[in-house]
Simulated assay, not measured.
Amino acid sequence: MTKQGTLGVAVIGTGRMGADHVRRITDVTSGARVAAVVDIDAERANHLAGRIDGCTAYSDPAAAMTAPEVDAVLIASPGPAHEAALLRAFEHDLPVLCEKPLTPDATSALRVMEAEQKLGHRRVSVGFMRRYDAEYLKLKALLDGGRFGRTLMLHCRHRNVSTPPGFTNQMTINDSVVHEIDTTRWLLDQEITAVTVLRPTPSTAAPEALSDPQLVLFETSGGAVVDVEIFVNCGFGYQVQCEAVGESGSARIGDGHHMVTNSAGRWGGEIDQDFVSRFADAYDREVQRWVDATRRGETEGPSVWDGYAAAAVCEAGVRAQTTGERTATTLVERPALYR
């Protein structure tokens, strides 16, 4: 049903990402307000809610979802908590924007997919924000238009300044390369059929036991090949780049051509230091489009199928990372709801 008036959103998880979404809905997004915040850290939730008129703090997602002022849910809690929150939202038939990952593994993602199918309609949009980035949108339109013929290869770079304590090799796939997994599937409209991971001698800046950088190779159902340089302790900045090579031309995004300065005999610019600044506009666009679609009574954007497919490819990637062997990806048949 079309939602008249302002959409009341419950934000589940008030850490860095959740707090940023609270700010975004309050200060940037039109047609919505933060009606509730949920966190197991009651003090943090109360502090955040106290700064927003008409916002109530909860420690239990289920309690927030039964509140009459809540019309939709934005999930920004840690991945292992997503499944329970999603299933609870389905019980109330609430629209959901769920930050990636949908769930931490393919098996739990399948359970979510089965539950959504029982509703008979889509309710979840998964937060793969690159699909809303202006540069990625231009590249997608170019490839869909067929100007350069069939896309043969994608060359991707994904660099972070540094990693937090406890960052593991598995996390390079599950937390970082997962974005290239989704953008590959989206840009090419193909599934990833196999993954290979090559691990050169680690950088001296890599923490102990972390292979950094790595080169991840995807093969796709349409015969394309994709390479991803993942370098999570590069030290100098946050960079996400993608070059599509077609039969008769190529296109590259992510070079970061911001303002260039000339001073003291030098020219140069700035490099983003994290994903929050690099993709700020994409997050704004993502949330606004989710709100607009929800108020129209629609669900758009990356689906539960996309979240499941990404989880399945991540699992193949971690196996390839561990064994050093090319690893095939296994997907169930795509249900009609997601075609």
Rank of each mutant, 00 (worst) to 15 (best):
Q241S: 14
P61I: 07
W305V: 04
V232H: 13
E243D: 11
L97E: 00
A134S: 08
D281F: 00
A209W: 10
T56N: 04
A89C: 05
V70G: 01
M153V: 05
T330G: 10
E116I: 02
T330Y: 09
G324V: 09
H47S: 14
I253H: 04
R296H: 08
G223D: 12
K100H: 06
Q190K: 05
A36E: 04
V70A: 06
I75Q: 00
A35I: 03
P302T: 15
S59H: 03
K138L: 01
H257E: 11
D284P: 01
C234Q: 10
T66G: 06
W186G: 10
Y308H: 07
L143V: 08
D41N: 13
I271N: 07
R44V: 13
A206I: 07
F231D: 15
E325K: 13
Q239E: 15
D20V: 02
P202V: 12
D284M: 02
A293C: 08
N46S: 12
F167D: 14
E333T: 15
D93S: 12
L119D: 04
T26N: 05
L7C: 05
T107E: 15
C314K: 03
A141V: 03
I12D: 00
G249S: 11
R285Q: 07
G79M: 07
P80A: 09
G265A: 08
F128H: 06
P95Q: 05
I230G: 02
R111I: 00
Y338W: 15
V313W: 04
W305I: 05
T327V: 12
I192R: 04
L188P: 07
S162E: 14
D93G: 06
S248G: 14
T103S: 05
V291G: 01
A89Q: 00
E191K: 12
V197Q: 10
I12P: 00
A42F: 02
H121T: 08
V232N: 12
V28H: 02
F128Y: 13
E286R: 09
Y308N: 03
S303P: 01
V22W: 02
G268I: 00
K140S: 02
L154P: 04
I12G: 00
G149L: 13
A64L: 04
V34W: 02
W186A: 14
D93A: 10
A67H: 08
C314E: 08
L217T: 13
R252M: 09
Y238M: 07
A62C: 05
R51P: 07
T261Y: 11
R334M: 14
G127A: 10
L217M: 14
T323C: 10
T6N: 03
R157K: 13
W290S: 00
T299F: 06
V37C: 02
T107G: 12
R150L: 09
R51T: 13
A310P: 10
R339N: 15
P80W: 09
V287Q: 01
M129E: 02
R150W: 11
G307L: 13
S248W: 11
I52R: 03
